[in-house]
Design a protein around this nucleic acid. Sequence first.
DNA 1: CACACTTACGATATTCGTAAGGATT
DNA 2: AATCCTTACGAATATCGTAAGTGTG
Lengths: 312, 312
Amino acid sequence: MVPPHLSARHLVAFVELAEARSFTRAAKRCHLSQPAFSALIRGLEESLGARLFDRDTRTVALTTEGALFLDSARRLLADLQHAVEDLQDHVARRRGRVCIAVLPALAAGWLPDVLAEFRQQHPGVAVDVQDVLSEHCVAHVRSGRADFAVAATRSSASDLLTERFCADPYHLVCRIDHPLARVRRPTLSHLAGHPFIHLARHSSVRPPLEQALFPAQLQEVMALEQLATVAGMVRAGLGVTVVPELTLFAFQHPELQRRALDAPGLVREIFVVRRSDRSLSSAAQGLLELMEARRPRPSPTSRRRAERAGLP
Amino acid sequence: MVPPHLSARHLVAFVELAEARSFTRAAKRCHLSQPAFSALIRGLEESLGARLFDRDTRTVALTTEGALFLDSARRLLADLQHAVEDLQDHVARRRGRVCIAVLPALAAGWLPDVLAEFRQQHPGVAVDVQDVLSEHCVAHVRSGRADFAVAATRSSASDLLTERFCADPYHLVCRIDHPLARVRRPTLSHLAGHPFIHLARHSSVRPPLEQALFPAQLQEVMALEQLATVAGMVRAGLGVTVVPELTLFAFQHPELQRRALDAPGLVREIFVVRRSDRSLSSAAQGLLELMEARRPRPSPTSRRRAERAGLP
DNA sequence: CACACTTACGATATTCGTAAGGATT
DNA sequence: AATCCTTACGAATATCGTAAGTGTG
């Protein structure tokens, strides 16, 4: 149906010849010898089944049908160029869209600087962020609404690829005038008997805590959805709490004391989750690489304690 | 700028592979061996500078950028196909437009049957007819408003090509009860002394008459623009007239007598006029060929007299 | 005879199909 | 083991540039 042999070169040569009205000049503009150019045009005419030019030995002029095709050829070339440039813009990350799903704590505390850097590098790439709880992050990836997720859920499903991203060690938070505020190196056993403020059960903060705190007799005062609310309750003296380091941005308050917990087993792990059946777009790949380069590092104290625990 | 090597085949192969999601199946649909097809896709990816497919040994899937380009490729192929078909439709005379300029007499008497036949052969080709006087016919061709003209003017200008089309011998027309109606073989000298009705001076009927009638003492009654008016005047007995054979359709009336004039030098010649710097469109070429095949032939009487005059 | 397009022809590149290789289910 | 894509390689095909041919002003 469509002449398979027809190439962009044919169209370019045709337009050049129509404009130059001379095989010699058009051949030069196409960086071809004149006979090669002549053969090119002949090949085009044959594959189209139409004479496009009247060539006298002295003049070259479009036929009526050639003039008709000239418009088409110009339009086709412009469309082709547009399509190719659009594709290359996406590959080069000059344009595009990345959709990611990120835990609210990371989205608020760590992500903004990373995204600022990414947007500076690739101002044409739009970024959609779904700042939702871990399970929802994974659901977004699975349904295709997100290119990848940074979440605390490790999915064992075969349609998803899970890769460890970073560790998020826990910290104690209490009022600065609370008795625990003066403990230099608090452990889980220090928490016994103190009123404790939890995050909601479906938060990814809970599972590691649940496992580690089982032995300690906690006096649970309440469970809340939002970190800011927990911070407010602790500041009001209603209790203490234990939260992962990456949420500490919500507890930056002069009346609050934050200390790394000396509890080697108590770590929330953060994963990157993506679909196993499709590769990342160039822009998504770029964002993921930047995220990995800017991967959050645990505080020096937490790191030292983790190392010490790992040695023996 | 645009990858010159990119051909329609690449786009077809790309779309086929995107749909088949299998190199083997897509290769078959393109009538290629699977390795050749593989190389084709690789070449496309290289010339675009973008990976279009993720190929596992087990699955083939579009990359994000490939999915983007799929829309473009489909659109480009459809546009290309449309452009090529449009061109071929014009070449095959399934579509198009022919603009011709034809002397009013021929346009009314001879042309209709020719055009009816042409329209039956090529119902998709529109025909514009300018039925105007000879000089206007030529002007239309020169300005490009007509593809060619059938007129009585021979142009010597180098931008026009003039080719003899047919001869148009003159006939005497008078009332059936007029004395000349009984003359079997009227000549110019028979006209002397009879009131004569002329066509207007700018009509192409006049110049040959002017030359031939100089010796005869004509009693000119009036000069008119339209053949039908001349016919009316003759029928009313105001005079006789002499007109070319191709205008006789206007004198078909039971009260009018028509006789071929025995005046060998008195002939209006009809020409086909076209531009020398551009070729005819396929449709125009077709119409011209049909016209030449249906070229008007002088009546047997006129022909016999012309032959007899040509022998000695 | 000078200019411009076409044809001829040998050299170089591309593209093809067959056959072998490698990876995954 | 079967399937599917890639690599290897010799053969067929296309394309290129130089040089000669042809027709026109």
